[in-house]
């Protein structure tokens, strides 16, 4: 059909008509090549986004047709859903701790690697590896083994006579195992920090050392301020990632958010509402609220950035 359309376009252009048909004639092959992507973009991305917005105002169980309920889904979130409140608390705790810890860790390793050591490319690759594997199911399963009651961590602690709990099935620690898993995937912010550190001219440090500044003072007064654009970028990306975090919690808690909802991430709760309880309307409302949340956070970050991010130009 698309070929026919192109033929038709060629035909009209040949009959010497409008600017549009001539443009179509010259661009048609390009659009044809893009067609598979367009189908995916409109059919699998834009389409569902738009329909989910509509569905968020309905009651929909996938089997019967959606039933319009107005803002009832949104009202319910804030008035009648304790699990929602719990998932918000879990997610915010996760974001609040995992992002700063991960960034601090990434920066520390980047500074270490930036000292011009031998075998830098190797170390860079090794440290980056967890980020490639981190979001995968396999690593989450590995994590479950490490922090289980008879896992590696407890075996290690046993050497010192400490009888550790089962970290992942104890609600006091379960979220922390996920935070540590997230921090362990510090590779991508580290690479970006490393690139940022390389951008700082060496003579800044030379001038500062002639000014008598210690390494510590150079870090706080030179390195960190000049790195703020990179810190800002990493913070935004990592915060969005953290809000969206799903796989590790899903695997480690077997998709339940257990123990006693201590790892009930927002996305996990959303997933369960949609695919365990088939409350598609409510799940869509949750998804849209998450988008709003991330949007607000990002906007807030940009608004405050002019007070602490130093752009050179």
């Amino acid at each position: 059909m698309a070929v026919n359309a192109a033929d038709a376009a060629v035909h009209t252009a040949a009959s010497g008509t409008t600017k549009w048909s001539r443009a179509w004639q010259s661009h048609a092959p390009g659009y044809l090549f893009l067609l598979p992507w367009f189908i995916g973009f409109f059919g699998l991305t834009i389409g569902p986004i738009i329909s989910s917005f509509y569905l968020s105002f309905t009651d929909f169980d996938l089997l019967t047709s959606p039933e319009w309920v107005g803002t009832a889904n949104y009202v319910r979130m804030f008035t009648a859903d304790r699990a929602f409140a719990q998932s918000m608390q879990v997610t915010f705790t996760f974001v609040l701790f995992s992002v700063p810890l991960k960034l601090a860790f990434a920066l520390a390793i980047a500074i270490l690697l930036n000292r011009g050591m031998k075998g830098l490319p190797l170390y860079r690759a090794v440290f980056y590896l967890p980020s490639l594997l981190g979001a995968s199911v396999a690593i989450a399963i590995l994590w479950r083994q490490i922090f289980a009651g008879d896992g590696l961590v407890n075996q290690f602690l046993a050497n010192f006579g400490i009888d550790g709990p089962s970290w992942i099935s104890n609600p006091r620690y379960s979220l922390w195992t996920l935070i540590i898993l997230s921090v362990w995937q510090f590779g991508s912010p580290m690479i970006i920090f490393l690139a940022g550190l390389r951008q700082i001219p060496q003579d800044m440090y030379e001038a500062a050392s002639l000014d008598g500044a210690s390494k510590w003072r150079q870090f706080w007064k030179i390195t960190l301020p000049l790195l703020t654009p990179v810190v800002f970028f990493n913070a935004i990306i990592q915060t969005i990632e953290a809000f969206k975090s799903f796989t590790p919690a899903f695997i480690i808690s077997n998709g339940t958010g257990s123990p006693i909802n201590s790892t009930l991430f927002y996305t996990l709760y959303l997933y369960n509402e949609a695919f365990s309880y088939f409350r598609m309307g409510y799940a869509s409302a949750l998804a849209w609220f998450l988008l709003l949340l991330i949007g607000c956070f990002t906007a807030f970050s940009f608004l405050t950035s002019k007070y602490w991010v130093h752009y050179d130009d």
Binding site: P201, A207, A208, L210, L226, H310
Partner: peptide, 30 residues
């Protein structure tokens, strides 16, 4: 003796001014 202890000040070819500090802060830093 470390650079700071030699009683020396240096003007760099690139000037090496701290870009995130005002001129006042640049002068006051040391």
């Amino acid at each position: 003796v470390p650079a700071a202890g030699r009683g020396i000040a240096m003007v760099f070819q690139s000037y090496a001014l701290y870009p995130h500090m005002s001129v006042y802060k640049n002068l006051a830093f040391g």
